[in-house]
Amino acid sequence: MDETTEGSFQIIGGNFGNAGEASMQLKSKLTELGVNEAIIRRAAIATFEAEMNVIIYAAAGRLHYYINRDKITIKIDDMGPGIENIELAMQEGYSTAPDWVREMGWGAGMGLPNMKKNSDEFRIDSVVGEGTTIEIVINLS
C-alpha cells in the first residue's frame, strides 16, 4: 500500500434508495487492501452515518476517500442548510429529523457521535445556508 487509493461519490439529497453505496464501496476497497477488520468496521459506521446525513439533510454532497499506508481519510461536503449549533448537534440524542425520517428508524441523534467515536480525528465545519464539511481520519497503524 505505497500508493494512495482514492475514490469519490456523488450523494443526492433525499435519495434513500442509494444510501450506503459509497460506504459499501469503501468497505470492499478496504477488504481488498487487506485492512484489519476492526478498522473496516469503524470506517463503515462513520462513512454510512455521514452519507445518511447528506441524504437526510442536504440537497447534494460529495464523499471522497483517500487510503494510504498510514490512514484512511474520508471527506464529506454537502450543499445543505448547514448546522447552526455544532456543539448541540454533536450531542447524542439531538435530532431535527422530520417524523417521516424517524419512522424509518433514522433520527436517533447518534450519527455525528457515531462518526466521532469511530474516528481517530474528526473535524466538522458548517456554514448556515451554505453547507457542512466533515473530515474523518482513521489510522491504519
Binding site: 444510501a19 450506503g20 459506521i45 454510512f48 424509518m104
Partner: peptide, 13 residues
C-alpha cells in the same frame, strides 16, 4: 423496519 436501508446496515455490519 422493512425499507431499503436495512440491507445496507446488514451488509456494512
Amino acid at each position: 423496519q422493512t425499507h431499503l436501508n436495512i440491507v445496507a446496515v446488514s451488509g456494512l455490519k
